[in-house]
Amino acid sequence: LMMDDVKSRSFTPNIIYYQNEPVEFSALPLTCFEGETYQAVTYDSISTLLEEYYASRNILTRIRQKSVDLRKIVQTALERNYKKYDLQMKQLKDTEKRDKYKVYGELLNTYGYELEGGEKKLTCLNYYTNEEITIPLDDQLSARENSQKFFDKYNKLKRTYEALSEQTLETKREIDHLESVSAALDIALKEEDLVQIKEELMEYGYIKHRRTGDKKPKITSRPFHYITSDGFHVYVGKNNYQNDELTFKLANGGDWWFHAKGIPGSHVIVKTEGKELPDHVFEEAGALAAYYSKGRENEKVEIDYIQRKHIRKVAGAAPGFVIYHTNYSLVAEPKLLLEEVSEKKNS
């Protein structure tokens, strides 16, 4: 059959795309690439196809080279914070015994009168648990001095616990922020998409600020824009700044917001124009939220969705970080079910 097509000059110039990346081209249909992760796009002529294929490959190669330095900065900062977080969590675990020392001190104040001095332990009733307990003692100290020693230990561990609790939260916030930047680098398709990411890294101190007088780069990157078969506009943020802008500037209270549950990813906004969304739009938007997330390689991704009016910014957090309650959930397969509005390919 293939030879028949060649003999009759019945050509179908096409490029096979995998997640927006051109992987192969042919003058004839390539049936070996099947499944929803591959998309065949046809062209009017071989020359147009070759022009598009190599232009796309060059853009991807160039952006990967340009993103190497940014990825290295993000990865180095992430590894440093992972180590810091593990150490802080270990130190935090070491403070768990603080309440034991408080109980020891209180019980010694209650039963210490029974001691004559020189004892290495005291066995008594723990009135908190109604069980017998044995308290180790320093035989060189009085009951009161032993009690004070336990209270001092308790207070020191309590202060450590309070300080570490805040520090671990700060470290976790920094890890979450860096992982969100890493996710943005994963979906950057053009050089201009890297500009905002670099600006964010600069703002948060991961890259040196530009010198006084240096011109600030022009931001030309825009969110992905899709449209459903029944005319609903869907927007997907490419980075934290765009996520923030979509959710808190573009979206109205009645619009719907989608995001991969518990993992870094894009904010997906569906503009409702006051209308009720058909079920398939929820599925399509959920698939986009899964596709533009760190869960892209998974078979399924759990998606949270909720109306924009229930979304709140996290005070003091990096852009794009939000809180919400009473959301709905769906499970989506990461894939592009919609055609991008600005798409130049002819399918």
Rank of each mutant, 00 (worst) to 15 (best):
residue 281 V to E: 03
residue 282 F to A: 13
residue 285 A to D: 10
residue 287 A to N: 13
residue 288 L to P: 05
residue 288 L to I: 12
residue 288 L to Y: 03
residue 289 A to P: 04
residue 289 A to Y: 04
residue 289 A to V: 07
residue 290 A to Q: 11
residue 290 A to D: 11
residue 292 Y to I: 06
residue 293 S to M: 12
residue 294 K to D: 14
residue 295 G to L: 08
residue 296 R to V: 15
residue 296 R to D: 09
residue 297 E to Q: 15
residue 297 E to V: 11
residue 298 N to V: 05
residue 298 N to K: 15
residue 300 K to W: 13
residue 301 V to D: 02
residue 303 I to T: 07
residue 304 D to R: 07
residue 305 Y to M: 06
residue 305 Y to N: 06
residue 305 Y to C: 09
residue 305 Y to E: 08
residue 305 Y to F: 15
residue 307 Q to D: 13
residue 311 I to A: 07
residue 311 I to Q: 05
residue 312 R to N: 13
residue 313 K to T: 13
residue 313 K to G: 04
residue 313 K to I: 11
residue 314 V to H: 09
residue 316 G to L: 11
residue 317 A to N: 05
residue 317 A to Y: 06
residue 318 A to C: 08
residue 319 P to H: 02
residue 319 P to R: 02
residue 320 G to K: 03
residue 320 G to Q: 02
residue 321 F to Y: 08
residue 322 V to M: 10
residue 323 I to T: 08
residue 323 I to N: 09
residue 323 I to K: 11
residue 324 Y to G: 01
residue 324 Y to A: 13
residue 325 H to V: 11
residue 326 T to P: 00
residue 326 T to N: 08
residue 327 N to P: 01
residue 327 N to V: 03
residue 328 Y to M: 10
residue 329 S to H: 07
residue 331 V to M: 07
residue 332 A to N: 10
residue 332 A to C: 14
residue 333 E to P: 00
residue 334 P to Y: 01
residue 336 L to N: 03
residue 336 L to W: 00
residue 336 L to S: 05
residue 338 L to G: 03
residue 338 L to R: 03
residue 338 L to P: 04
residue 340 E to K: 10
residue 341 V to A: 02
residue 342 S to Q: 07
residue 343 E to V: 02
residue 343 E to I: 00
residue 344 K to N: 10
residue 344 K to Q: 10
residue 344 K to C: 07
residue 345 K to C: 01
residue 345 K to P: 00
residue 345 K to F: 02
